[in-house]
Design a protein around this nucleic acid. Structure first.
Lengths: 210, 210
DNA sequence: ATAAAATTTAATCATTTGATTAAAAAAATG
DNA sequence: CATTTTTTTAATCAAATGATTAAATTTTAT
């Protein structure tokens, strides 16, 4: 089956080439609209090879989906669990990391949301992130902030919706926003970069409530 | 071809039944994952009928897509162009209308974003909404607010991203949010309803800057 | 009522698409 | 170097899927 490789050498194996091609195509067009032949061509290999290595389109997709989800959630959940940062510092870190990540990989959010909806499966459970958020250091800080009267008493999920909405939505809606605002790609990217500093400010204003 | 009907009678024509079925299926699974046979079954008619009435899957889809886009953008653009309301009133109206609309039709946002990305076509142009936003009454109010020092001087597109992000993102990300927060459907809907009043408050806080 | 038009259906076609097979080529092993 | 194992390919299969056809049925018009 797959060639076993030690960790330090860069993976240029055929298996890895196929995975990269699958990642690109799945992210760009989703599961249903991606043809296994597209992936094979993008990887520069024959179609049969794909099934030889990964057995089926579904199996290959599951691997890509899992890795993408982890990439998408890891940094945010990690930051929220940092015991050594304030709430404000957490927001700043997440805004910076996320805008950098999504500028490099703008297809990820729509990909994840679409496929998660198409398959409301046990993927989230399988990833072991149950309770990771609701039991995080961030949640404790948040509740403490409420008790001290520094934060308006609303469900922390609102906070997550707001932070993710402000960060992620522009990438999901970029075709529409560019259309509505007559924006070039550069214009759009400039606005996005501004949000690195704007979003922490706005989140501060939101939390204080009125 | 299609039966001509006067406006006052409710459309129970076969053509309308097919359109409704197509709407449901396309919204739920998107263009690629929807089979014409799914639509036919949902409509309770034979497959050939679909092609008889609409000629092809693409043609049928284009109709649904256009109508859905109009439904999605009409109310917001209309509200933003109301000459007789303040900025705050506009935000309140949009929040209420949108949350009601999306509670009834939660599939619309992800559908539109996905298909708009899959086909970065001239649809937005074809809808005649070019300059509708950037030339709206809202934009004038917004710039005036900046001049008067009541609004922080950031591009009005940020305002749109923020308002739409806060309103729409929860619906796009609902599977993930329910998973991360251990929320039932009712829990989720309760949070969403709270946002009718929360979002106007937050948008006010955001606009004032820091 | 009869003819014409519109509507509906079963059967079938052609293409796309995920997957398999058998054999060739290359690499690893002894 | 021989042979065993791994990798790669061309050819093909079977099922799914969008679309068409020709005939039957129903509705509308005269």
């Amino acid at each position: 089956m797959a060639k076993s490789k030690t960790n330090q050498e860069v993976d240029h194996t055929t298996e890895e080439k196929i995975k990269q091609a699958a990642r690109t195509m799945f992210h760009k067009k989703g599961f249903s609209a991606t043809r296994t032949r597209d992936i094979a061509e993008e990887a520069g290999i024959n179609l049969a090879l794909l099934n030889y290595y990964f057995r089926s389109k579904e199996k290959l997709f599951d691997i890509i989906m899992l890795e993408t989800m982890q990439e998408f959630l890891r940094s945010i959940l990690q930051t929220l669990n940092d015991e050594n940062t304030s709430l404000e510092e957490k927001i700043e870190a997440i805004a910076n990391n996320y805008i950098d990540l999504l500028t490099k990989e703008p297809d990820i959010p729509l990909f994840i949301m679409s496929e998660l909806k198409a398959n409301p499966n046990e993927l989230l459970g399988k990833m072991g992130i149950k309770d990771v958020l609701m039991g995080s250091h961030f949640i404790r800080q948040y509740h403490q902030g409420i008790q001290e009267g520094k934060i308006a008493p609303v469900h922390p999920l609102h906070f997550m919706m707001n932070l993710m909405g402000l960060l992620v939505f522009p990438f999901i809606a970029s075709p529409m926003l560019k259309g509505l605002g007559n924006l070039s790609d550069t214009d759009f990217n400039d606005l996005i970069q501004q949000r690195k500093t704007l979003i922490p400010t706005w989140m501060g204003a939101i939390m204080k409530g009125k």
